[in-house]
Simulated scan of single mutants.
Amino acid sequence: MAADRAREHPGERAHPQPVRLLAIRRTPLCLEEVFQAVGDEAAGGIALFVGTVRNHDAGADVNGLGYSCHPTAEAELLRIAQKAVANHPVRALAAVHRVGELAVGDTAVVVAVACPHRGDAFAACRQLIDDLKHEVPIWKHQKFSDGTEEWVGA
């Protein structure tokens, strides 16, 4: 599909390095950094997803949570990023996930994808965040207001 579009619209060729930023960090995430990483003059659409810590889950009040990851998490993040690039006409892609202790309202993950057209950007961004949540070994340890705890994704 991307190759067909490149033939139809030469200005829409894929950037030689569409994966621009991938990271797993203990420090707060910066939306502007991710947005800037996917800037591309041939992109007509940029889709950005921001995941935050919510104050509830399955009817229980959440006080905070911690994220941890396996040592292979960054390699898996690269693998799923490359999969999104292979499946969509991606000009630029970025994804960062935070680990450590987070409070309600903190930013946990930011992904962004730039494509020639908005529909492709939305589809690629959706694939990227869904694959990140399902395939990258990052685990969430939720702490509830009633004193109970729960591991998610472990």
Score class of each variant (00 low, 15 high):
residue 1 M to L: 13
residue 1 M to H: 15
residue 3 A to K: 15
residue 5 R to K: 08
residue 6 A to M: 07
residue 8 E to N: 11
residue 12 E to P: 03
residue 14 A to Q: 10
residue 15 H to K: 07
residue 17 Q to G: 03
residue 18 P to W: 06
residue 18 P to I: 04
residue 21 L to S: 09
residue 21 L to Q: 12
residue 23 A to I: 00
residue 24 I to S: 06
residue 25 R to D: 11
residue 26 R to P: 01
residue 28 P to G: 04
residue 30 C to I: 02
residue 33 E to V: 13
residue 35 F to T: 14
residue 35 F to D: 13
residue 36 Q to R: 15
residue 36 Q to H: 10
residue 38 V to D: 12
residue 42 A to Q: 12
residue 42 A to H: 13
residue 42 A to W: 07
residue 42 A to G: 09
residue 44 G to M: 05
residue 46 I to R: 15
residue 49 F to H: 08
residue 53 V to S: 11
residue 55 N to W: 00
residue 56 H to C: 05
residue 58 A to K: 15
residue 60 A to W: 05
residue 61 D to A: 12
residue 62 V to T: 05
residue 62 V to L: 09
residue 63 N to A: 11
residue 65 L to M: 14
residue 66 G to T: 13
residue 66 G to E: 14
residue 68 S to R: 11
residue 70 H to G: 09
residue 71 P to I: 00
residue 71 P to M: 00
residue 72 T to M: 08
residue 73 A to H: 07
residue 73 A to K: 08
residue 73 A to Y: 03
residue 76 E to N: 10
residue 81 A to K: 10
residue 81 A to R: 10
residue 82 Q to Y: 07
residue 84 A to E: 12
residue 85 V to R: 10
residue 85 V to Q: 10
residue 87 N to E: 14
residue 87 N to Q: 14
residue 90 V to Y: 13
residue 91 R to A: 08
residue 91 R to V: 02
residue 91 R to C: 05
residue 93 L to S: 11
residue 94 A to F: 02
residue 96 V to W: 00
residue 97 H to R: 04
residue 101 E to V: 07
residue 101 E to P: 02
residue 103 A to W: 03
residue 104 V to W: 07
residue 106 D to F: 07
residue 106 D to S: 04
residue 106 D to C: 05
residue 107 T to R: 13
residue 107 T to S: 10
residue 111 V to K: 00
residue 112 A to Q: 09
residue 113 V to W: 01
residue 114 A to E: 13
residue 115 C to F: 06
residue 116 P to C: 08
residue 116 P to Q: 11
residue 118 R to N: 08
residue 119 G to N: 13
residue 123 A to Y: 10
residue 124 A to M: 15
residue 124 A to C: 14
residue 125 C to V: 06
residue 127 Q to L: 09
residue 127 Q to E: 13
residue 127 Q to I: 02
residue 128 L to T: 02
residue 129 I to S: 05
residue 129 I to H: 05
residue 130 D to E: 14
residue 135 E to V: 03
residue 136 V to Y: 00
residue 138 I to S: 10
residue 138 I to G: 11
residue 142 Q to Y: 07
residue 143 K to M: 09
residue 145 S to A: 15
residue 148 T to D: 09
residue 149 E to K: 08
residue 152 V to H: 01
residue 153 G to I: 06
